[in-house]
């Protein structure tokens, strides 16, 4: 059940082939404040953060909780709250922009998104894991990601059940393998 890529993975070549727009990681910047996830059919208007920053945050979110069968839009939705929060909180905005700038600096010439292997990006995250920036990212992500109802079926979790009469007639004791 977990092996099906139900959310649709991101094919890097899809956007690299797209011309006239800047591709960053799996995302694409269209204009000043818009980020598109072309293969996900999803995009967001950013209120405060630079699109490049958001694109890096999405990759960072995936590196924190890497679920290969979960599409980028779920990570993006979780990160969007930071943009909302940063819109009227200059301190928060600075923390996020500086945090991502720091990641890029640590990553070297091509920045965080330029590191092809998760292992190399995660090594950088380990170096900053005690920072307020990392903790804010991880702390919000653990709720912002796993609390998305649309994502639950991808983990095989069925969510609310009372309106369906519970599981008494729907398999509460249906496993046969033990």
């Amino acid at each position: 059940m977990m092996t099906n890529d139900k959310a649709g993975g991101v094919n890097r070549r899809d956007f690299l082939a797209t011309s006239g727009k800047t591709a960053i990681g799996a995302a694409m910047v269209v204009g000043a404040g818009t980020l598109l996830l072309p293969t996900q059919g999803w995009g967001m208007e950013l209120k405060a953060l630079k699109p490049e920053t958001m694109a890096t945050m999405i990759q960072m979110a995936r590196d924190i909780y890497p679920h290969d069968h979960i599409g980028d839009k779920f990570y993006a939705k979780a990160m969007r709250a930071h943009d909302d929060g940063a819109a009227d909180d200059a301190e928060k905005l600075a923390m996020l922009e500086n945090g991502i700038a720091d990641l890029d600096k640590r990553a070297g010439e091509n920045g965080y998104l330029g590191l092809g292997w998760e292992e190399d990006r995660v090594a950088i995250l380990h170096d900053i894991e005690d920072s307020g920036f990392f903790q804010a990212m991880r702390g919000s992500l653990v709720v912002g990601l796993y609390n998305q109802k649309a994502l639950w079926p991808l983990f095989g979790y069925e969510g609310a059940s009372a309106h369906k009469g519970g599981y008494i007639e729907r398999g509460f004791d249906d496993i046969e393998w033990v």
Partner: peptide
């Protein structure tokens, strides 16, 4: 459920080991 499992399985943990555990949620 998935939301509480993520918060309580190993609070503060992140990375592939944690995600791999979550991937087996229905198992």
């Amino acid at each position: 459920g998935v939301p509480f499992m993520a918060a309580f399985l190993n609070p503060g943990a992140w990375g592939r080991q944690f995600a791999a555990a979550m991937d087996t949620y229905d198992h």
